[in-house]
């Protein structure tokens, strides 16, 4: 009965998250798109993207312990603030990135339910095939989680995850080469938005500290610390795109996506170290109540992210304070 009530509350939360997505769409949806799919198809792709994210959230909430659900809702809220608005620009609406994340949600769902996990290989191949930038932006999430599962299991299952990890990496590399990945950096636009990025990082210091504290505690608690470092540093694979393609907004979004989904998946898979660290963070925020209420409303002031100027708020701060 308690489980049923918990599921009901989770579904209500997801409905409200869906409302948040709808209002974000109404507010930010572009009037046109550069996607080859066309405007109407781009809307359909966006709706599928939202549904994929919400279904993934639902799976994570269903699998996780009841005590973690409140923390997970905050984590999902944080990710959604950026995820729902990021692709509502003329350049990205209906683009490859949004389709890649739909496939990524599929990969994470099969890993969560541990059914037909071999699907991560073709899904990853398809994602890289849509755009080789996937490897740098979102491609580290699945290998990192496969590695986690390898270290967390024993015997035949451990071998299965090792095989899946190797196959995923191999397929990604093959698709990268096949789809002209070596030409990807033929045209370079060096990153120049240092002031904006610096200001953005400064503004998000509290969140960086929380993430740092979480992973430091996680790594300290692990018996095999190696994969803890993969979990903690897996989000920095987007740095080449930041440095050589001037995609500030995309890389920041990719970092948020990586850490939110990895933490969510660890909690959903019942990792005791992750649960312990989340309980610790929860206790700190509850102690700081009511200031803890700002934790989800503050990021909204920095949406939507974009590649040109990171976001409007930061752009304005830089123009005003550091002209």
């Amino acid at each position: 009965m308690r489980l049923k009530a918990q599921r009901k509350e989770d579904n209500k939360f997801l409905v409200w998250l869906g409302m948040f997505a709808l209002v974000s769409f109404i507010l930010y949806a572009p009037r046109e798109t550069r996607s080859i799919l066309g405007y109407e198809a781009a809307i359909v792709v966006y709706v599928v993207y939202i549904l994929a994210l919400l279904l993934l959230y639902r799976s994570i909430l269903a699998k996780a312990r009841a005590t973690m659900n409140k923390a997970l809702r905050y984590l999902m809220g944080f990710l959604s603030v950026f995820a729902f608005s990021f692709f509502l620009t003329v350049e990205k609406f209906g683009g490859a990135d949004i389709c890649q994340i739909i496939l990524l949600c599929g990969c994470l769902s099969v890993l969560l339910y541990e059914k037909r996990e071999w699907l991560v290989v073709p899904l990853t191949a398809a994602a890289v095939g849509m755009g080789v930038g996937y490897i740098f932006l979102y491609g580290s999430i699945v290998p990192v989680l496969l590695l986690y599962k390898y270290f967390a299991r024993t015997g035949a299952r451990q071998r299965k995850y090792l095989s899946l990890f190797v196959l995923t990496i191999a397929v990604s590399a093959f698709m990268f080469i096949f789809c002209g990945g070596f030409n990807y950096f033929a045209e370079i636009t060096l990153f120049c938005n240092f002031r904006r990025l610096g200001v953005f990082v400064l503004c998000f210091i509290p969140y960086l500290m929380m993430a740092f504290s979480f992973f430091r505690g996680l790594i300290r608690g692990l018996s095999k610390k190696a994969y803890g470092w993969f979990l903690g540093l897996g989000g920095i694979t987007s740095v080449p795109l930041l440095a050589l393609k001037n995609q500030g907004g995309s890389c920041i979004f990719a970092v948020f996506l990586f850490y939110a989904l990895v933490i969510g998946m660890l909690l959903a898979m019942g990792d005791l170290d992750a649960i312990r660290q989340m309980e610790r963070l929860k206790a700190i925020l509850q102690r700081e109540e009511p200031i803890g209420a700002f934790v989800l409303v503050y990021p909204v002031l920095f949406m939507p992210l974009n590649d040109a100027s990171i976001c409007r708020t930061v752009d304005y701060m830089v123009n005003l304070i550091l002209p």
């Binding site: 939360f13 409200w16 998250l17 209002v23």
Partner: peptide, 15 residues
């Protein structure tokens, strides 16, 4: 206790 509590202020900001 409400499920939408985390979004209470976040949702408002869109308006």
């Amino acid at each position: 206790k409400k499920a939408w509590m985390p979004l209470l202020f976040t949702y408002l900001t869109l308006f």
